[in-house]
Design a protein around this nucleic acid. Structure first.
Lengths: 196, 196
DNA sequence: ATCTTGACTGACTGCTCACTCAGTTTTTAT
DNA sequence: ATAAAAACTGAGTGAGCAGTCAGTCAAGAT
């Protein structure tokens, strides 16, 4: 059974994804959820708190998926490839909710120092951490170039994936399907030199 | 001499960069520009039109810079490297105005089909075009792997650069300086195999 | 001197929207 | 059954905001 509170989060995710946070009114969220306007504020103190709940519900699943992908991989390079494929698939399957993350984070909270910001920050740091661990593992088992700066590369990979996803879901330009091209591109950049 | 209209665009760029479009009021823009509130609407029909003017003024310079970087390069690979370095430098030097682009495009106009959208679309397509030409040139002069899918890779590079820039300017996480690491990463991914 | 025009002003308007609260219904405990 | 607590409701409120408009002012043009 779905509680009212869950219904609100689902409705908010749909609308925030479609129109963005600022452009969605609480009245619309209530209507979409089939709930009175006041009920929103019984369950959530503010509109922003609804956004945060949507963010948490998707990011928890996302990070868990990343960790599973890494755990099942046989080498560091395989882990990186698994992460890339997971990302591409996750976005495909959770297009709508993922849009919320892309649209309103981190820009929306950029200039506030609410406790909410700390929650978001922790999540994002977790994601970079998973990538970094995979890179370190690859350096040790020799499937990834030894001269690669790990911290920097982890951020580069995250930036790459983020930018592509953003263009795919929010961009004006039609993108060709990029799945394997991305994996190839990264493999090429990360693998040890042929004659080494 | 700076006209009032220019003063408005400069003020709007500062505020939109700092707080975002939706979170900035026209009254604030007027005050920052040292102009009466009504003057905004004498020069611009709507608030959105001010945003568009800010966008155009920065993107025109940006695209011109990209084209210059490519023109002065001695090979395809050198062109790509020049593009990457240009991007990193441009963002550094135009941090504030570039923030406007990152914050509010393309997400803000995503669901409108105003004529404004077409303007933005043309700009972005132009950027991808410059990258694609550099890649093709590299394939022909042999400085870039021949088996690389050009269209796909152009989008990957744009995504990479966009994602990194966004994290740098808007992100919650402190990034290490990435300049040369990015260039190395891409060179590695693009260069022909050693034994070819 | 008088007229015209274009830049500029700021009080005002009408509307939107997040949030409140006094009251009702439903659930749970005893 | 009864009381108490929790969930829910929706009309209302007040703040904030984009855009308007009647009018001022200064600089040419006649």
């Amino acid at each position: 059974m779905t509680t009212r509170k869950e219904a609100i989060v689902v409705a908010a995710a749909e609308l925030f994804a479609e129109k963005g946070f600022s452009e969605t009114t609480t009245a619309e969220v209530a209507e979409q959820a089939g709930v009175a306007h006041g009920t929103l504020f019984y369950h959530f103190k503010t509109k922003e708190n609804i956004l945060l709940e949507v963010f948490e519900s998707i990011m928890a699943r996302y990070q868990a998926g990343m960790e599973a992908a890494v755990a099942n991989a046989g080498s560091g390079m395989a882990a990186i490839e698994a992460l890339l494929r997971f990302q591409l698939a996750f976005v495909e399957e959770n297009r709508q909710e993922y849009l919320v993350v892309l649209r309103d984070f981190p820009s929306y909270l950029a200039n506030s120092d609410s406790p909410q910001k700390a929650v978001v920050q922790r999540r994002l740091a977790g994601v970079v951490g998973v990538i970094r661990q995979a890179l370190e593992r690859g350096r040790q088992d020799g499937t990834i170039r030894g001269d690669l700066p790990v911290e920097e590369t982890a951020h580069i990979l995250r930036g790459l994936v983020y930018g592509l996803t953003r263009h795919k879901l929010l961009g004006f330009l039609a993108l060709p399907p990029l799945g394997e091209a991305v994996v190839d591109f990264c493999r090429q950049a990360l693998q040890p030199a042929a004659g080494a």
